[in-house]
Design a protein around this nucleic acid. Structure first.
Length: 523
RNA sequence: GCCGAUGUAGUUCAAUGGUUAGAACGAGGGACUCAUAAGCCCUAGACAGAGGUCCGAUUCCUCUCACCGGCACCA
């Protein structure tokens, strides 16, 4: 059977500042899904990158008296530094200023649009602020003036290339309505569909300008066959998802293997471009559409949007330094519902850390290994069918009937794992995490049920099966947390080892070590 | 303004046209001790407000209030 492939992308991040908590969530969400799909054996490609063109970059670079390329190189260095700290396992990092890897793809896409007859020259009218040396949107105006320069923008016209977005209105609408282009959550698809209505009547999408005249600083991708024009952001940036796979190069193996994307992760601010314009560009170029857009929410702090003036900005590095990267990753995985806005405070983080990691997972590992070490010198032999049943009612599988035979391995296989996998496949990493912690709680309950620390004085054999059952449980936990907390998974693996069949085939053997220090220090 | 969503314990969420509306974290209490004074058990605590439909509504409808999102070239 052919190996299943999985292609997941994040948006490319604009290289004019540092990555913040919102970007961190995007990256961690995509990373957990990428790692999960690798873990279950799919051939996975995980892409992220940086968007480096545009007037804003040129201006920001000028302000620091830097060449745009030097300016973005600095920013990208910072991006990659944070990504390393976050343990992001991307297979490639695409940069829109990369003339070798990105430009040929962007140009090929442009040419495909031309060949489809979807590019034409027209006049673009926009509000231009002389101070900014850039177009400014009506939304940005304060009292009709540019807020930065307190000056009225002038309306100027220029010759640009336009893309016939209107031509694809009907098709796009059909794709969204029939869910052939799946948007998660669904209500975001409805938001997109509202663009096809205007005051209750049907409307078509307007064409968009997709180039700008070259200005004094040439910073952007030249339009094929017209050196006077540079690509505007749409074709330039969106094409990264295929240029990174080699579209437009002489080696398009990755492109033919991985395109279309299985999941494109993004914040809710950019679904319009990804849900309407991007599919339209692909339709025009006669390329397949991504299978699903996964739209996540925004982060707030203390109920307010993070902002410097409010002083409530929380930096991901702060949490990594104080609690460790896996603490941050597991927080993002379990405490955030991907499709909703969320709220983060230092207090909340600390509470969750202590409850889930120090008191929960960390303590469970600690008590299990201590008993294994103390009573059995770390060497335990057992098998799934010999582990005694749980004595305490577990609501999730109550329908199964009485508790006889309902032991840790049975519950893991028949209840916990199927639910974990179902949630992961639905990208519900928060629910998948909840299932893991439900299982952790079963293991703690199991210890309470049998009190092996007392039982060992009267029934060593049964005690061994109980602790072996706990180790079996930890083994399953390692598998489940690997995408979420890769470092922690490795640490626990190093402690409990990999079980092996014993010589007389009486069961599986664990040879365990006691931890030198707690996995998660209580804070 | 228009369109759409949401409002459930201190907090984050769940469920349901009908006996005591669930859970987690947090809070208070208890018995234990393998463990990071963690874990386990017990307790307290909620359906935004008003009206309507119905034998009966937290659940359906209307209105009010609150909060959020979208409303075209902004990465």
């Amino acid at each position: 059977m052919e190996q299943k492939k999985f292609y997941i992308t994040t948006p490319i991040f604009y290289a004019n500042g540092e990555l913040h908590m919102g970007h961190t969530y995007t990256l961690v969400l995509a990373d957990i899904l990428a790692r999960y799909h690798r873990e279950i054996g799919e051939k996975t490609f995980f892409l992220t990158g940086s968007d480096e063109h545009g007037d804003k970059i040129v201006r920001a670079a000028k302000k620091e008296d830097l060449d745009p390329q030097i300016f973005v190189d600095d920013k990208v260095f910072l991006f990659k530094d944070l990504m390393e700290k976050l343990n992001i396992s991307n297979d490639y990092f695409i940069r829109t200023s990369d003339q070798e890897r990105h430009w040929p793809g962007a140009m090929k896409l442009w040419q495909a649009l031309v060949d489809a007859g979807d590019i034409y020259k027209s006049t673009y009218n926009g509000l231009y602020c002389v101070g900014c040396e850039a177009f400014i949107t009506e939304k940005e105006l304060v009292d009709g003036k540019c807020p930065l320069h307190d000056a009225k923008p002038e309306t100027i016209s220029e010759e640009n290339y336009f893309f016939k977005l209107s031509k694809y209105s009907t098709e796009l609408r059909r794709l969204l309505e029939d869910k052939l282009l799946k948007i998660t959550p669904e209500n975001k698809a409805n938001e997109l569909l509202s663009f096809f209505l205007e005051e209750g009547r049907e409307a078509t999408l307007s064409d968009v300008s997709i180039s700008r005249p070259r200005r004094d600083v040439s910073w952007g991708i030249p339009v094929p066959n017209d050196p006077e024009q540079l690509m505007y952001v749409w074709c330039d940036a969106l094409s990264n998802y295929i240029s990174a796979l080699g579209y437009g190069s002489n080696n398009d193996t990755d492109f033919s293997t991985f395109w279309p994307a299985d999941v494109q992760v993004m914040g809710k601010d950019i679904i319009r471009f990804h849900g309407l314009l991007w599919p339209a560009l692909l339709l025009s170029a006669k390329l397949p559409l991504p299978k699903e857009l996964l739209v996540h929410g925004f982060v707030n702090s203390g109920g307010k949007k993070m902002s410097k003036s409010l002083g409530n900005v929380l930096d991901p590095k702060e949490f990594i330094d104080e609690y460790g990267v896996d603490a941050l990753r597991s927080y993002l995985a379990r405490e955030v519902k991907p499709t909703e806005d969320w709220d983060l405070t230092r207090e909340k983080f600390k509470e969750v850390y202590n409850a889930n990691l120090a008191n929960g997972l960390g303590n469970l590992v600690s008590r299990t290994l201590k008993m294994a070490e103390q009573y059995f010198d770390g060497h335990l032999i057992g098998k799934a069918s010999s582990v005694p049943p749980l004595r305490t009612h577990i609501s999730a599988i109550a329908e199964v009937g009485d508790l006889e035979g309902l032991n840790i391995p049975y519950v893991a296989t028949n209840d916990i794992l199927p639910r974990y996998h179902a949630h992961m496949h639905a990208h519900e990493i928060n629910k998948a995490s909840d299932v893991i912690w439900e299982f952790i709680s079963h293991l703690d309950q199991f210890i309470t049920d049998y009190e092996p620390f007392k039982l060992v004085k009267t029934d060593r054999e049964k005690t061994e099966q109980i602790i072996w059952g706990l180790l079996y449980g930890l083994d399953e936990i390692i598998k489940m947390i690997t995408p979420i907390m890769p470092e922690t998974a490795q640490k626990i693996r190093a402690l409990i080892g990999t079980p092996v069949l014993d010589e007389e085939q009486r069961g599986m053997v664990f040879d365990v070590k006691t931890p030198m220090e707690p996995l998660f220090m209580r804070k």
